[in-house]
């Protein structure tokens, strides 16, 4: 085993074990209760609002790719795109998706196309509404802002990995009066979304949305399993603080470097 990764492996195994344990419980009928998230309930409201106004929806899955530490945010965004696209198809509302990462384009196209197909409205699906804009961050930002200004959407969804463009999108969306739902796990952008959007999915909430939508007890169980991970984190923080306070940092370092 590589040095310095033993401790991470233990945490990974324990956390995965907790999640699989909750899945087993769920399969025996013990489905955990999930508290309501305002951002999740607002998704349908946003699509409904765009429909009432007769305006489209603009969706940006962020600017992160599919790999690396930010990849999970893109997957979470695509999961939410599936739900939003299906709801939009149900209400006959146009959905425009702006893409920055080329690998995400075919996936987003398939998600939106199959959402319309699932609602029996494949004829309403317009392939030109899932658009690759640019790989360059600010060319992409200009593209999305341009779409918002021209199409005047009734609702915007800014969900995924965002960097400096987050506030640009949120402010333009605000200026055109769109109902805005945002979500990111990029800490330095959360405050911008909170300041300028109607609802914000904070960090882990964004990853949990799929479980809320599906109603699948197994997915719900996984969310409950996550809480065990947080309990481990709290325990480690307290233990680490105590060790540091009593001058036993060498023990902590030895564990981390194992």
């Amino acid at each position: 085993m590589y040095q310095g990764r033993g401790f991470i492996l233990v945490v990974f195994v324990v956390l995965s074990g907790a999640i699989f344990y909750r899945i087993r419980l769920a399969r025996t009928g013990k489905v955990p209760y999930l508290r309501k998230l305002a951002g999740v309930s607002a998704i349908e409201e946003a699509v409904g609002r765009a429909t009432e106004l007769g305006r489209p929806i603009v969706f940006s899955p962020g600017i992160a790719g599919l790999g690396g530490e930010y990849g999970a945010q893109t997957f979470a965004a695509l999961e939410i795109l599936g739900y939003v696209a299906r709801t939009a198809a149900k209400y006959d509302t146009r959905i425009i998706v702006g893409i920055r990462i080329p690998e995400v384009l075919p996936i987003a196209e398939e998600i939106v196309r199959s959402a319309f197909a699932a609602e029996g409205k494949l004829d309403r699906y317009n392939p030109d509404d899932v658009r690759f804009l640019s790989q360059a961050q600010f060319a992409y930002a200009a593209g999305v802002m341009g779409i918002m200004e021209r199409e005047r959407p009734g609702a915007t969804f800014l969900i995924g990995g965002f960097w400096a463009e987050s506030l640009m999108f949120a402010e333009v969306g605000n200026s055109i009066g769109a109902l805005q739902i945002a979500g990111t796990a990029n800490l330095h952008q959360i405050q911008f979304f909170v300041a300028a959007c109607d609802y914000t999915l904070l960090g882990e909430e964004m990853f949990a949305v799929g479980a809320y939508f599906s109603g699948d007890p197994v997915k719900k169980a996984i969310i409950a399993g996550q809480d065990f991970g947080k309990i481990i984190a709290i325990f480690l923080i307290v233990a680490g603080t105590l060790f540091a306070t009593f001058g036993l940092e060498s023990i902590v370092n030895r564990v981390i470097n194992w």
Partner: peptide, 27 residues
């Protein structure tokens, strides 16, 4: 928030890995 998001990302990763989460393949 970092810890919560990291645990959430790990859980999503597991869901994708074991095939529970397949929305990226379309409906």
């Amino acid at each position: 928030i970092i810890i919560g998001a990291a645990v959430g990302a790990l859980s999503l990763g597991l869901r994708i890995l074991i095939g529970l989460e397949r929305s990226y393949l379309g409906q």
